[in-house]
Design a protein around this nucleic acid. Sequence first.
DNA 1: CGATCACGG
DNA 2: ACGCCGTGATCG
Length: 449
Amino acid sequence: MERNGFTLDADYCRAAEGRARDEEAVCLVELRKWLGTIHCAIPDDFNWASGKQLQELFHGRLALQPSPVWKKGRVKVAEGERKLDQVALEWIRNHSDRSMRRGVDELIRLRRLRGAIKYLAKLPTFIAPDGLVHPVTGPASDGDARSGTITWRLAAKNPEIQQIPSSEEKDWFRIRRAFVAPPDHTLIVADEAALEAVILAHIIIKLFGDHQLAEMVAPGAPNLHSRNAREVYGVQMGWERHGRAVRDFPLECFQDRESYPELYALRQDIKNKVWYAIMYGMQPYGLGFSLRDANDEPIGEKAARLVYDSLLASVPGIHRYQDWALGYIVEHGGMVGFGGAWVDLREFTESGDKWRLARAHRIAQNFPMQEGGARIIGHAMTEISDDPWLRGLGLCLERQIHDELDFRLPDSSPLPEVCARIQKHMTSYPLASKLQVTIGTGANWDDAK
DNA sequence: CGATCACGG
DNA sequence: ACGCCGTGATCG
């Protein structure tokens, strides 16, 4: 990937950057206007990127209500702790009157725009004399001690290609459209579907002979997160939405944002805030802060425990896996991945401290899934690189984003057959559960995905 | 150079 | 102390 490089549309970046900077300027003017209407003067060199200055303004002079939540959980408001990250800002916004809300909204906008500008401005600077961008997957220089991860995942830097904004809500400028196929080429984007859930399904079969999760993530199975949303909120908790019992809706409704926004929101909650968090060891305490009610208030540990217990009750293998992982690290002082890597956790397990043991337990639960994912994608990468037919057709690997491989292919090559061969290699790792791959093609990264 | 914030899986 | 693994821009 470092040698192959990839093509970047620098003109697209510069045009989008120009629009973003224009909007940024508007934002700054609007913020000043807002402060004027509430009769609040700030120095000319006030820095909206300074957490310290922002805290003094919001919680000092404007006396906005401090948020009890931030991205990582609880804010100790009583102890004087204040947070102004995106999660906290949203809470503050929803608990402010209209005159204040105007300013908080504008600051949220400003952060978004600057997030986009960060990438749009710097990406073209990485174009090398050969016209390509060559990101680095090992140490970036003699002074760089970072050579990867303890789970054997790759990392990528200069530029950080695995962190390019993806979601439409976060990326107003579609940065991935700048990652284009070179002339007379097509991009191929191949993604392992729900990779870590498939790995956990494999582990649960091997440990307990339990095939439930494997069947839930198998090809042709009902959508995992829709199923979980209906099971947890409908069957287990008996909630109603759109004037009907949630349990009575067909699963397709949970993915229909237009017709059933309330069901769609339940599915998003389960997918983004519950499923992976629980797989990696989040407890009802933490879940009580990340899940919110209709007023954006954290639902609390007690209500979160219902969701937590419901999900574990409907997929008992996860709970058995968690117990198994704890017993394993207590006995062995570390955790093994199925690719053979080992993470030493003795500094936690031998400390005699229950919090450090809990930390080791979470690392241990996550490790086989992250390590296994790295093995599976690494296996696919080497199989594809070693395939003489693909090599002869000029297929080039451009990027790896943990569970996704991006290639370029000359247009003279047979696209459907190449995609089929990629799919075969990406599903060939021997597992008790079944790997699935989704493939897209296009002229740029955004279209192909 | 540590802390905070924001982006991805 | 109460999801895991990363990279990087910015502040103080």
